[in-house]
Design a binder for these strands. Structure first.
Length: 626
RNA sequence: GCCUCGAUAGCUCAGCCUGGUAGAGCGAAAGUUUCGUAAACUUUAGGUCGUGGGUCCAAAUCCCACUCGAGGCUCCA
């Protein structure tokens, strides 16, 4: 960081036009300040909070000497030829401004071309220039991000972190990744390469993107920011059923469902300290003098809430749960893909507040089972995902038996990442990674043991002797982002299609479970009565009353993945049994009404239900996607 | 965010290299047809060629910038 500091009688500046796209949103108007120290600042690559602090404290010292209490920070790119990214620069500039809030401080708009007029005082201390840089040279292990310019200490340390990769087998043997025989574990190999070697090679778009459009589930919304999707009626129905299912499961486990705000004050003390721990990749909103950010997880709300609870050791473990619609993360634009990686997503997030590590481990067990069960019931099997487990060396040495127990439960080898020292707030973390047919891995369920945030958020519980302690906090998402679950289901369906099987959603998630086709118009009434009866049993049924040939309507029922199709003609009118075309086999079977209903109920047992989310009559529906 | 590629009717795509009045299939509308388990027939409508600028007598076509998307890199609290 380079600064030029001038003690001035006055300065006038006038923003004329935006210089860069990411310029601050302001109403350009001329400003005049008197008796002020003007600091021209150029923020350079590698600058971070530490440097900002250092700079501002030097500025304050010299301002004390000249007895001036008014400070203007003036972004001035021309001082350096090695500038940081504008986003970094702006956030550091704002950080400096807030660090000087004991003075009368302001900053000239960032990213604007400005004209200015300055009158500098004539005393010896009035002018000075300084350069601030890190004392420590960056590590040279090949992962420094010097060309990016980072906003926080966290990202720097993250790049310094050194990982050791192993494969841990159910029998307890730990093998270095390079030496493991992946012959029977193809997907694990993909995950290991993906994570450890960071190797990927794909040259086609992900198949689920096509399906999400074709099945009228979801689509891009160009009028929003990238990674913010629109969900059509089918997508909303599927998503809402998944949301309800996960929520019901967590409640059964003992989670207390809450709802917390989606935006928070960046200057709240807990947030500030948390921010210093993580790269700034959030959406920011400035409003009426407040700097708000959109939440990127449910942690804040739940921790702030827990902070206000009176908690006894008898109440522990205490589980809070929220399904965030939405969480927001400003992922890099190049990383956004279909429903796999979004900037706005729906995330079940369950925190368990525990007294100590043994209790945390006990709870961790339950949540491991909960997560596996949720995925299984949702339609994602063990064979679809690979487990990764991450821990510090210290935690491993103290809890070896437990870690091996988890792997034994998983029943197949898992990828291990071990750190020499704890950098993140957690000491142990596992996640289930869905590996798609293009060889991309993405995390679904996850759980972590957090030993840091209890203190950060001032959460306390009282033990037997009425002494307060900070709890250990578990962070679990039993399913991962709901959008990502849909992605996984669609990728599975795409794989089925590719390998010649029929693609299908689980029946409880099917937008239409039963389709009725009247052979001629004269059977319309009969069809409607039948549809009424089925709906009364909580079955999503619709009627293809369009003037199309039977063959065509059957075909469309097929392409919409509808499992059961009932054709109603003369034969059916007179007879008690139904003729049911089962898409899985393509055969027509005969069942009584009750038999048919219980056949469906069997498959949708213990799953939530919601009503049809489109008009019952196909002739009344707009065409959303072809 | 960086590099590479792409954007033409509601959808899928041809036309672009080599500049000269915008094409197909599906879908939609109207009519005919009333059908037995994966695509009936006829007719009609439908396009600022992603947006903005440039070159040219003339731009969907060549050039530049931007937006959105895809792949890779980086990243994923």
């Amino acid at each position: 960081m380079r600064i030029l500091q001038l003690h001035c009688d006055s300065i006038e500046y006038n923003p004329t036009k935006k210089e860069i796209k990411s310029a601050e949103e302001i109403t350009p108007e001329p400003k005049r300040l008197e008796e002020v120290v003007v600091v021209f600042v150029a923020i350079e690559n590698g600058d971070d909070s530490e440097i900002a602090q250092k700079a501002i404290s030097e500025i304050k010292t010299s301002m004390g000497k000249v007895g001036c209490k008014k400070l203007l920070l003036y972004p001035y790119a021309h001082l350096s030829s090695n500038l940081a990214a504008p986003s970094t620069a702006l956030s550091l500039l704002k950080e400096m401004e807030s660090l000087a809030s004991d003075l009368e401080v302001s900053h000239a708009p960032f990213g604007w071309t400005k004209s200015y007029n300055v009158k500098v005082k004539g005393h010896p201390l009035a002018e000075s220039s300084k350069v601030f840089s890190k004392d420590v040279a960056p590590h040279d292990h090949g992962h420094t991000h010097d060309d990016e310019g980072q906003a926080s200490e966290a990202l720097k340390s993250e790049s310094k972190i050194k990982s050791f990769w192993y494969i841990l087998s159910p029998d307890g043997t730990m093998t270095e990744v390079d030496k493991f025989n992946f012959a029977k574990h193809e997907k694990l190999e993909i995950l290991a390469k993906y994570e450890a070697a960071k190797k990927r090679a794909v040259d086609e778009p992900p198949p689920h993107v096509k399906l999400m459009k074709k099945m009228a589930i979801a689509d891009y919304e160009p009028a929003s920011d990238s990674g913010n999707m629109r969900f059509y009626p089918n997508g909303r129905l599927i998503k809402s059923l998944l949301e309800r299912f996960v929520t019901d499961q967590v409640k059964e486990y003992g989670g207390l469902e809450v709802e917390t705000p989606i935006m928070y004050d960046s200057h709240h003390p807990s947030m500030e300290s948390y921010f210093n721990r993580f790269p700034a990749r959030q959406y920011n909103i400035n409003t009426e003098g407040k700097q708000l950010f959109l939440r990127f997880a449910a942690c804040f709300g739940q921790f702030l809430m827990a902070n206000d609870f009176q908690i006894s050791y008898k109440n522990m473990p205490m589980k809070l749960y929220e399904l965030t619609r939405y969480s927001f993360r400003r992922e890099q634009s190049g990383e956004l893909v279909g429903l796999r990686r979004l900037r706005a997503f729906t995330m079940p997030d369950c925190h368990a507040f525990c007294t100590d590590i043994p209790q945390a481990i006990e709870e961790f067990r339950k949540r491991f089972d909960l997560s596996r069960n949720v995925l299984k019931e949702v339609g994602i099997d063990d064979s679809d995902y690979e487990m990764a487990i991450r821990f510090t060396e210290e935690f491993y040495n103290e809890n070896k038996a437990y870690i091996e127990e988890l792997v034994r439960k998983m029943g197949k080898p898992v990828l291990v990442e071990m750190w020499k020292e704890r950098f993140f707030y957690f000491v142990l973390k596992w996640e289930f990674n869905y590996v798609d047919n293009l060889g991309k891995a993405s995390a679904l369920s996850t759980d972590q043991i957090d030993v840091e945030n209890g203190a950060r958020y001032g959460i306390r519980y009282f033990d037997e002797s009425n002494t307060p302690h900070h709890p250990i906090i578990l962070h679990n998402s039993p399913s991962g982002a709901i959008e990502r679950v849909i992605y996984a289901l669609l990728e599975k369906a795409a794989l089925d299609q590719k390998e010649g099987r029929k693609a299908q959603l689980p029946l409880w998630l099917a937008p239409t479970q039963v389709r009725i086709i009247p052979l001629k118009e004269e059977f319309a009434k009969h069809c409607e009565e039948l549809a009424d009866k089925l709906s009364a049993s909580d079955i999503r049924v619709d009627i293809d009353d369009r003037n199309e040939t039977l063959g065509k309507r059957i075909r469309e029922s097929e392409t919409e993945w509808i499992q059961y199709t009932l054709v109603i003609g003369e034969k059916e009118i007179g007879k008690a049994n139904l003729s049911i075309r089962d898409r899985k086999t393509g055969d027509v079977i005969e069942l009584s009404f009750d038999e048919f209903v219980s056949k469906i109920k069997e498959q949708t047992k213990d799953k939530p239900f919601t009503k049809l989310n489109l008009s019952r009559y196909l002739s009344k529906r707009p065409q959303i996607m072809v």
